[in-house]
Computed example of a mutant assay.
Amino acid sequence: MSNAQPIIAALVPCYNESLTIAKVCDDFKKYLPEATVYVYDNNSSDGTAEIAAEHGAVVVHEGRQGKGNVVRQMLRDIDADCYVMVDGDDTYPIEQVREVIAPILDGTADHVVGDRLSNGTYAAENKRAGHGFGNDLVRWLIKVLYGFEYTDVMTGYRAFNREFAKTLPVLSPGFEIETELSIHAVDKNWRIVQVPIDYRDRPEGSESKLNTVSDGIKVLKMIFSLFKDYKPLGVLLADRARVLCHRACTGHSRDRRVRGDGSGPEVPDGDPRRGVLRARCAHARVWPHPRHRGQGQPPRLGAPRHRGLRAEIAESSSLIDGLWVDKH
């Protein structure tokens, strides 16, 4: 990073955080006065936006519901050299913000993760047992699928540089955003630093918007969806291994040859894919090989020189998954 004064943006996505947003804004002014605080209000109905504006934040309204939608718009709108993001619920210590952004400012990291788990404060403060289990499960899946071990995946306390922010294709609409940030950083080989932070639970009267079950399922779907997009070869190999394992266990083998009359592989009556094979076989019988066009007679399918047509019919059997033709 250049010697010029870096532009720092503090990003605070918010939805109904009227009890805590004032303290979050004031803490940024106290511990990181050179930063511009951006509060993106996501359809709050409790006056969160008005309170944030009174405490010096730049307030922007985002109508598309969901944290992922908010973060996507933030990164599109805001230009900075260093971004630091926290939730508006005052569970993350702003007093440690300089420790979190230090690796970004000195150029040793592209993405910094505020780790709540290493020092035990999350286990001591968190009152929702399912959240801890879900975090551990997601960490394990990312380690298995992507080969990187995070100490805390679901944390909302993060920092990143301009290059990371502007190349992040935020796909998730909701609370899956933390998982997406983590996977993107690993898959694209960004430099990752994990900084231990203290965690404190929400104050009395403040409620979490995260649903352990429904949002947990969305996170798991996001992990496998990104794996399919980022590592398609791995998905194809895994699917092929599944098919081979099924064949080995059931003792079946697929025979792509057709019956002697050229009518194609056997397909049970009523199977909706029967028509596909029938059309392919009919096409091969009705339309002659280019070599014979104009001669009035289509080639015999059984003739050796027309094995290409027989192969075309036989290849149709690959459209049928799970149908087996006895060898003969």
Rank of each mutant, 00 (worst) to 15 (best):
F160S: 03
Q65A: 10
D110Q: 09
K166Y: 03
R278T: 15
V243D: 09
R247M: 13
M1S: 15
S206N: 11
V24F: 01
Q73W: 09
L171T: 10
M154H: 08
Q295T: 15
E17R: 07
Y199E: 06
V39K: 08
A9N: 04
R280Y: 13
V112R: 04
D215A: 11
T36P: 04
D87T: 04
D215I: 13
G114E: 06
G322H: 01
M154L: 12
K228Y: 15
P169M: 02
E204C: 02
H55F: 08
A311Y: 14
A52M: 02
I197E: 01
A314D: 07
I51V: 07
R76W: 06
T250K: 06
A279N: 15
R139M: 04
Q73R: 11
G56S: 02
D255G: 07
D261I: 11
R305Y: 14
R76S: 12
V325N: 12
A129E: 03
P203T: 05
T179L: 09
R257N: 05
Y157I: 00
S118D: 02
G275S: 10
M222V: 12
L323C: 10
R200G: 01
Q194W: 01
L226R: 13
A311Q: 14
G275I: 11
P268R: 00
V24S: 01
H283T: 14
R259Q: 12
K231W: 04
L301V: 06
G134L: 08
Y92P: 05
I104G: 04
V12C: 03
A238I: 08
E17I: 05
A4I: 07
R200C: 00
D26K: 09
T155S: 05
E312W: 15
F175N: 06
S214A: 13
N43C: 10
R257K: 11
I192M: 01
D198A: 08
S206V: 13
N16R: 00
S172Y: 03
L210K: 06
I78T: 03
L319K: 11
E50C: 13
L75H: 07
I78S: 09
M1G: 14
L237C: 11
C281L: 12
P265T: 10
Q194C: 01
A22K: 14
H283M: 15
L19C: 01
K231D: 00
S172E: 08
E312C: 15
D255P: 05
L75G: 02
V138K: 09
R128L: 05
D136V: 11
G296C: 10
V144H: 15
P6E: 07
K228N: 15
I197C: 07
I183S: 10
V86C: 08
L11D: 00
S253E: 13
A303C: 13
D229S: 15
A52K: 03
G156K: 00
T121K: 03
L236P: 12
A123R: 11
Q73M: 10
A159W: 02
V258H: 05
R300E: 15
L277N: 09
T250D: 06
C82I: 08
G308K: 14
R72V: 04
D41F: 00
G147Q: 13
L137F: 10
S208H: 04
R247L: 13
I197L: 05
F28D: 00
D136Q: 12
G302M: 14
D46A: 07
I51C: 02
R310N: 05
H252S: 10
N126F: 01
D77L: 11
